[in-house]
Every structure is written in structure tokens, then in C-alpha cells.
């Protein structure tokens, strides 16, 4: 395939902040699952129902016909998740069925159960996320990156064609982001990440006093906790697609651009702009 010129695609600010929130989100996810393990169910409303049922999701362990099983419930629907969720780790027949924990050791920081350490890690990297996102927003507003990223009307018009190209694994390498890319990044940066920060803050009884409107916005503290979890799932899905796209579009070139800034574009005529 004929190669086009090397272009400087990402500014230093974009690259630094990208890795800032990438590392932060990694630890936020794993420490978040640790925190979830301390009370592994999600509810709708202000409070968690103990005398009534307002749970929409839960992970636990139950005895089924004398045998311990990991059970995950979604909207009342039960799934046997032994080995992954609810019950995982080494089992010794006749002695112990495994470890009773919602998310397994491989998915939590620290790997053992510690709500205290999980919280310390979570809040440390929450600052990492907030600071890198704020820095990115300021630099991007100043250097024009924000304008490039924001999906325009012509982007929306080109969206169906771009989507079709992606489905056929035809990727374009241009200095500019494609319409689907712009839309996805905008969704992550302006909806998912701020949503994550706001629903997280809504779990703070201190912050509730400062901004009670946030509780009304999200429909109560326990709903906010459920949303915090749902947006996390959305970000995990984004991460998987993000990595898949990098692998499919040429991992060396893509990685070079987010590390050094330099990106090999397609030869002229290769892309239809």
C-alpha cells in the first residue's frame, strides 16, 4: 500500500492527558470493583431496600442443592456465575468451595478484600482523572483541538458511509478524526467521563449537602450508584472497541501517534475527503 506523509497528529497536551486518564481509569475500574464487593448489589432510589426490594442487580453466593454457587441477579433473573462472580478462587473439595466475593481477585485492586485500601486507591486516581480531564479541556480549548474533535454537521452527513467503512474494516488514516471517531470520543469525553465524576460525587454525603440538586438529577443516591456502575460498563465496552480498532487500523502507527505524536497518513487518493 502506498504510504502518505508522516504528520504530527497529537499535541503533547493530548498525549500526556490521554495517558493520565488511561492509567487513572485502569485503577479506578479495579478499585471500584473492590468497593462494589463490600456491598454487591445495586438499587433504585435514595436508599437500599432491606425490608423491601428495590435491587436491580446483585452478585452473591447461595447454596443450591447443598452446593455453593455464585449467583448473579439482573432484574430478578438469576444466572449461575460460579468461578467468575460470587464465588471464585481456589476451591478445596469438602473444605471450602472457594472465596465468597462478588468480583474475583483478578479484577480487584488490591487482589485481596480490602475496602479501606480500595477506597484510598479509588480517590487517588479520581484526582488523576479529574486533573487530566480538566487539563485536557483547557489545553484543547486553547490549541483548537476541541473544535476539531466536536462533530460537525458534515460529520453527521458522512456518518453512515463511515459506519459502513468500519463494518468492512476499511480504515482511513488522516490527520483528522473520522465522523464515527469524533462522535465516540465526544461521547466518552463529554458524557461518560463527566457522568462518571458527577455520579461518583453524588455518592458523597458531604457533596450531597453542597449540591443537593445532583441527587434530584440522578434520582437518589442509590440510583446514582447504579448509574456509576452502568457508565463503568459503558467505558469498558468503549475500551474493548478502542483497542480492537487500534489493532485493526495498524497498532504500530496508532501507538506511535499517541506516544510520539507522529502518524503515518494514507497516500493521496486513498481516502475520500
Amino acid at each position: 500500500m502506498p504510504k502518505g506523509p508522516l504528520v504530527r497528529r497529537h499535541s503533547l497536551a493530548t498525549r500526556l492527558t490521554h495517558w493520565g486518564w488511561a492509567i487513572s481509569l485502569f485503577f479506578l475500574l479495579l478499585s471500584g470493583l473492590q468497593i462494589f464487593n463490600a456491598f454487591p448489589s445495586l438499587h433504585i432510589g435514595q436508599e437500599s431496600g432491606f425490608d423491601y426490594d428495590n435491587a436491580v442487580f446483585s452478585i452473591g453466593a447461595e447454596q443450591v442443592q447443598g452446593e455453593w454457587r455464585g449467583i448473579t441477579r439482573v432484574f430478578g433473573q438469576s444466572f449461575d456465575t460460579t468461578g467468575y462472580l460470587g464465588l471464585s478462587g481456589e476451591s478445596i473439595p469438602g473444605l471450602k468451595p472457594g472465596e465468597f466475593r462478588a468480583f474475583p481477585a483478578a479484577l480487584t485492586v488490591p487482589s485481596y478484600q480490602s475496602l479501606a485500601l480500595g477506597r484510598s486507591v479509588h480517590f487517588l486516581f479520581a484526582w488523576g482523572l479529574v486533573i487530566s480531564l480538566a487539563a485536557w479541556l483547557i489545553f484543547s480549548a486553547l490549541n483548537g483541538h476541541l473544535r476539531h474533535l466536536w462533530p460537525s454537521l458534515s460529520d453527521l452527513r458522512r456518518l453512515p458511509a463511515d459506519l459502513w467503512d468500519h463494518l468492512r474494516f476499511r480504515f482511513h488514516h488522516s490527520v483528522k478524526y473520522g465522523p464515527l471517531q469524533k462522535l465516540t470520543y465526544a461521547l466518552v469525553l463529554f458524557v461518560a467521563l463527566p457522568g462518571m465524576i458527577l455520579t461518583g460525587l453524588c455518592l458523597s454525603p458531604g457533596f450531597n449537602a453542597a449540591a443537593p440538586w445532583l441527587l434530584d438529577l440522578f434520582g437518589g443516591r442509590q440510583t446514582a450508584r447504579t448509574l456509576h456502575f452502568l457508565i463503568m460498563l459503558g467505558l469498558v465496552v468503549f475500551f474493548i472497541i478502542h483497542i480492537a480498532m487500534i489493532l485493526l487500523a495498524g497498532p504500530i502507527n496508532e501507538l506511535r501517534s499517541i506516544v510520539t505524536g507522529w502518524y503515518r497518513t494514507d497516500a493521496k487518493g486513498e481516502h475520500h475527503e
Binding site: F26, F27, L30, G83, Y84, S88, P104, A105, A106, L107, T108, V109, P110, S111, Y112, S114, A116, L117, S120, V121
Partner: peptide
């Protein structure tokens, strides 16, 4: 199952790095 969990752990490969932080 072992393989899947192992692969996940490898992909994330960070869950034990803060074990000593407590």
C-alpha cells in the same frame, strides 16, 4: 475457566501491583 481468568488477569496485569500498599 482458569485460562479465561488468567487471560483477563494478564490483560489487566495490575491487580496485584498495589497489594503491598496497605
Amino acid at each position: 475457566r482458569k485460562f479465561l481468568l488468567g487471560a483477563t488477569a494478564f490483560a489487566l496485569s495490575g491487580c496485584e501491583i498495589l497489594d503491598g500498599a496497605g
